[in-house]
Design a protein around this nucleic acid. Structure first.
Length: 524
RNA sequence: GUCCGGUUCGUCUAGGGGUUAGGACACCGCCCUUUCACGGCGGCAACACGGGUUCAAAUCCCGUACCGGAUACCA
């Protein structure tokens, strides 16, 4: 039997980090088993569902590259089928009409009202004391025909228990006494969540339901519906929850943008890095390894590796450095500097484009950015074999771009850094960091004349260096120097001694003047 | 309240009868670097508590505490 899983977000907000992880686990399980990953928008609560939210969720999934199979199912489209199912259960005597007038929804805090009510009941409540539970079919039909409004409730047996074997939490049991005669169809005719989910899961032939642990109680109710329908329930796998640093609920209300997937996209995170981070929140392959490609995740993912305890998503409000989880930040930086340039290039391009720093020359005709890049260009880092003349591709060329990225990405954390910290590499129009100026320029007033002087010196020592670097005589033989790291060092050191200053002063001053920031590749 | 679940360094976690309780992030130090990072090396730091079972318990059982979830004509 082919595995079929579904991710069923309700479109009442953006893609939350917890939902994103649920989606990821569903995706990984489907791909691991060679099954299907389906998407179902659970929009039965039309009062709260918005199209904007649906779009935002779809955007988030697209960003994470969790492509779904088959058509997206909108639960609201199936309302008629849900109603038909409720009526069938009614006809079979497995459900009944409840003519109790609908309670006015408490306006303030629904959740609190429910908790208060539950506390007040102190567990003394008899879940089967509904007046209409045993109304004769004839009388029920009659009242309905007379136009009296009613909800349809499932008739839960007096004694017994629901049970299912959760792939993560093991055998789960719940006495019927704990479960109310749940409402299937509202008095206004709208199908409710549990009914809708069961109907759709059956119709979509879902084999594994992977969702948050907060649904365990719903699962018991859904098992009841499956039983009433005479359908074997799918396998359930409940996931531990992702908590806020205080181990409380992670919510938009309280924690703001840190919980939204779009925040990470906009902050310059690589989807691959964030996916990797998310995968390790509540799941482990049982090995000492942190970096996993999507393929590896797919290959190693299993329901057995899912934890039973909640995980804390760690961040510190009001600390810009720790605005989100340290490990997520580290992982992103790790990806930025180690991923093959070819994989990084498209993202850098997008970033530069949005910052209006992109030039068409970077991408020569007929050569896609993702194309394999020459091995020399891929050599990463600022390290270069000693004694080899520095090959400086034409500024603005494709090769120049690749080398530049390799040079600067070593100290970057997000894609944003390419247009912020690294702006000077792509444009003459960049800002100066006041702290960097203070630290590296203002303190040494002499730099004002030294730096231009050094520039002249370079020009004199390395004339025309881009044209024919390798042909040039070395210093021993004549005037001009080969443009190598060693020779640059000779020139700069000589200059430094001449001025009676330290190398660091010159290097740092030059970097700050040239790039506007204090951080950057070495001059030598 | 009731039902369900959980508890290993600050955080993510490995380990599930005998381990110096391992790794990662964060933090601190040293090295590398005449910058900042990267990197390398090292340090700090954990089995919630109490009872059992056992030659032996972080690991199995029970209880307590604490944390979380659920308890709608929301999803």
């Amino acid at each position: 039997m082919i595995t079929r899983v579904r991710f069923g977000p309700s479109p009442t907000g953006y893609l939350h980090i917890g939902s994103a992880r649920t989606a990821l686990f569903n995706y990984l399980y489907a791909r691991h088993t060679g099954g299907k990953f389906l998407l179902r928008i659970e929009d039965t609560d039309l009062a709260r569902s918005t199209e904007e939210s649906t779009r935002s969720i779809l955007d988030g999934l697209a960003w994470l590259e969790l492509d779904h199979d088959e058509e997206i199912v909108f639960q609201s489209d199936n309302a008629d089928k849900h109603r038909a199912t409720a009526k069938k259960l009614l006809a079979e005597g497995k459900a009944y009409r409840d003519f109790t007038p609908k309670a006015a929804p408490s306006d303030a805090n629904v959740k609190d009202a429910i908790k208060d009510r539950a506390r007040a009941a102190q567990g003394e409540k008899n879940m089967r004391d509904n007046l209409y539970r045993d109304l004769s079919a004839a009388e029920s039909d009659e009242r309905a025909a007379a136009g009296e409004p009613f909800a349809i409730r499932l008739k839960v047996a007096e004694t017994g228990k629901t049970s299912f074997e959760d792939a993560v939490y093991g055998i789960q049991e719940r006495d019927y006494a704990e479960t109310e005669d749940l409402v299937l169809l509202r008095s206004d005719g709208h199908p409710l969540y549990n009914l809708a989910v069961v109907c759709d899961d059956i119709e979509m032939a879902i084999t594994h339901v992977i969702r948050g642990q907060d649904h365990i109680t719903n699962t018991h109710k859904q098992v009841l519906i499956y039983e009433a329908l005479g359908v074997t329930p799918p396998t359930f796998a409940h996931l531990p929850l992702i908590m806020a640093p205080n181990k409380g609920k992670l919510s938009k209300r309280k924690h703001g943008e840190v919980v939204s997937m779009t925040t990470y996209r906009d902050a310059g995170f690589l989807a691959a890095a964030f996916r990797n981070f998310l995968a390790l929140l509540g799941w482990s392959a049982g090995e000492e390894k942190e970096i996993y490609s999507l393929d590896e995740l797919v290959q190693k993912f299993s329901l057995d590796g899912i934890h039973r305890s909640n995980a804390v998503f760690n961040f510190t409000e009001n600390d810009p450095r720790k605005w989100t989880d340290d490990k997520a930040q580290w992982m992103n930086a790790e990806y930025i500097r180690t991923v093959p340039v070819a994989d990084l290039l498209p993202f850098v391009k997008a970033e530069l484009k949005s910052a209006k720093l992109w030039r068409e020359e970077y991408e020569p005709e007929g050569r896609a950015l993702t194309e394999t890049i020459s091995s020399t260009a891929d050599a990463g880092a600022d390290e270069r074999p000693a004694g080899v003349a520095i090959d400086t591709p034409e500024h603005g060329s494709y090769d120049w771009l690749v080398q530049t990225i390799n040079l600067i990405r070593q100290r970057f954390f997000t894609l944003k850094d390419f247009s912020m910290q690294g702006r000077a590499y792509f444009s003459e129009d960049y800002d100066f960091d006041p702290a960097a100026i203070e630290k590296n320029l203002s303190k040494f007033p002499d730099l004002k004349s030294w730096l231009p002087e050094l520039a002249d010196r370079f020009e004199a020592e390395f004339p025309d260096e881009e044209v024919d670097a390798l042909q040039k005589p070395t210093r021993e033989q004549g005037r001009n120097l080969q443009f190598t790291e060693e020779n640059i060092e000779i020139v700069v050191k000589a200059f430094t001694e001449e001025k009676g200053t330290k190398l660091g002063v010159i290097m740092n001053g030059a970097r700050t003047l040239l790039t506007g920031v204090a951080v950057g590749p070495s001059m030598l």
